[in-house]
Design a protein around this nucleic acid. Structure first.
Lengths: 246, 246
DNA sequence: AAAGTTCTGTGCGCTAGCGAACACACTACT
DNA sequence: AGTAGTGTGTTCGCTAGCGCACAGAACTTT
């Protein structure tokens, strides 16, 4: 923000990579490749084989399920707290979800073969991956329930909070159309819900730019789902506590 | 059904246990304890610590998420193709879901400590567990999407099929009230949907007893979600192919 | 400055599913 | 046979969200 260092990336900006024991970092980091993630970029398609796992540092990626009709719904969000491509170490190689970049940025990627090699050498990496996977599972499950029982208004709040936690600052770049796709609802529904939040002074919304003005109010208006996911994630991955580095 | 052997259980009736290499079976089987699962029994509560993993042989267990309001939704079903308690080896020890016996029967349980001990000894067990977990993830994700986009009628079909696959025969014992809880909808909604299926001659329904008369028709009426989950599960766990032993 | 494109706001009518209330089974127990 | 209990069917008004259609507003391109 105020100096050049902010534009330089380090694997340590990803919480999972940062949480590894140093000896593992030493072995792995040299194999990491920095990559740019463009908005809307499809990182993998449903059914496609995965060759890499990706560790975002300042990007957000959505895991989307797309139906035959074309209707879709986001089942989870991944930022610098996690990784893309669990299927690779779960043994399935591919998933039936699609991963789309929701917020442009960067990530480090690691060849799948490197990963499994490291698994065999030392259990710590695997252990961490599994813990993360469990938190992902929690998010998916909560999403399922939320889809069933909560209003668009509540879900929008939840979604904003989840996204916010994965971004620096209180601003996100996102059209209502895109949010609608994520939530699996109509764009008009989002317009309405966002309008209410705008009127309440909770957010400021202008052509694809959202600024959250009152975060605590947002948490209040959100359904419980956000808190459930957050709490469980913090429990499973306690190292990820500092939202932003001072 | 026609001889006494059917009342005797074997760990091999669980597909995961059956798929293990013989040397692992030899080590593990002596530690398995047969247990009876009563209808409605809560196997673990959200947040509770898990001490055992359970491998059903002729029971079905639902993973339920319960909201503050008390409203609930099933996020996945587990039968003899899987296990209860992934959190134990994922490292989290507890989950935020509740596991409820949906169809009474039996399971073998294994102490968590035994499991991790075996993990360290040989990777095959872990590998299998992970594959299964991935198929579970698929089911959860698909459920989330299904909740968002499909009608109660379609979801009921999907649910019947998923349950049927985990049971011998074409009959299940289940009240509409319970199904409603699973699907996270009103009981009346289920009454209506089931009424339609009844009228079409697809199922026969009487006070908690459902007999599926026309399975292919049921698949036809179901949303794509059943097929997606089934296909993916078969891909990930191909050993589980024979639905029933001859 | 003009034209085109992309986002956002509104206003319909329509339907699935909800909540509540109640009537009628069928089963079980005494 | 009588009574209680537990499942199931039906009705009725209500609301959230849908699909569609269109208008304006804000950027982009030429």
């Amino acid at each position: 923000m105020h100096d050049a260092i902010d534009t330089t990336f380090s694997p340590l900006q990803n919480h999972l990579l940062a949480a590894l024991p140093e000896e593992v970092q030493v072995r792995i980091f040299s194999f990491l490749e920095l990559e740019k993630l463009e908005l809307g970029q499809v990182m993998y398609e449903a059914g496609g084989k995965l060759a890499y796992v990706h560790f975002p540092v300042d990007a957000i990626v959505s895991l989307l399920y797309v139906m035959e009709s074309g209707a879709s719904a986001e089942i989870s969000v991944v930022g610098n707290e996690g990784l893309i491509g669990v299927a690779l170490f779960m043994g399935g190689e591919s998933t039936s979800s699609r991963a789309v970049v929701q917020s442009a940025g960067h990530a480090y990627r690691l060849k799948g073969s490197m990963l499994t090699e490291e698994f065999n050498r030392h259990g710590k990496l695997l252990e961490l991956m599994l813990r993360y996977t469990q938190s992902l599972i929690t998010q998916m499950a909560q999403t399922a329930v939320c889809n069933r029982h909560h209003s668009i208004d509540q879900q929008l709040c939840r979604w904003l909070l989840l996204s916010l936690d994965r971004l620096p600052g209180n601003h996100l770049t996102m059209t209502q159309e895109l949010i609608a796709n994520m939530l699996g609802v109509r764009r008009e529904g989002v317009t309405e819900a966002a309008g209410k939040l705008q009127k309440l002074g909770v957010i400021d919304y202008h052509r694809g730019h959202i600024t959250v003005l009152n975060r605590s109010k947002l948490e209040e208006l959100s359904c419980e789902c956000y808190a459930v996911v957050k709490t469980e994630t913090d429990r499973l991955l306690p190292y990820a506590l500092p939202k932003k580095s001072a």
